[in-house]
Each structure stands twice: as C-alpha cells, then as structure tokens.
Amino acid sequence: MKTPVASFTVVLAAAAIFSTMILCCGCAAVPQKDREFLADPAMRPVQDELESSLEGHNQPLREGSAGGQAGDGGGCGC
C-alpha cells in the first residue's frame, strides 16, 4: 500500500494556509447592517439543507466516488 504521509502532509499544509488566510481576515469585520445579502439563498454555501443531505448520501453511492464523504456509513446503497 502507498504511504499516506506525503498526501496527508499536502492536505494539512493546504488546510493550514487557508485557515491562516481566513483567520487573518477575522478582524476586518463586515458591519451587521451590511450583512443582509450574505444570508440570501444565493449566497449560502449550502442552499438547501435537505437537498444537500440527500446528495451527500446518494451521490457518492451512485457515482461510486470514495473521496472523503464524511461519515460514509448510513447504508449500503446497493
């Protein structure tokens, strides 16, 4: 089997860099009164909770993808 160390290192390094970038922006706050658009469905990272839940379980099963679907349990799908 391939060693996971190299790939994990890349993943974690990318994660650390992105987190640092976001944290550095943390003090540049958008005033509360200017945040109304951020709550709009068009702006939300997940636009529909139920749709996202169904896709999260079924799409990997039907597509046959194994790339990091959190929880991967919850049913055989066969």
Partner: peptide
C-alpha cells in the same frame, strides 16, 4: 471555519 470578507463575499473551509 467561515469568514465574511465583504458584504458580498464569504469564504469557508
């Protein structure tokens, strides 16, 4: 983590 960057920009990881 999630960050509002501007009134029309947000990033998450």
């Amino acid at each position: 983590v999630a960050q509002s960057l501007t009134p029309l920009t947000q990033a998450s990881a």
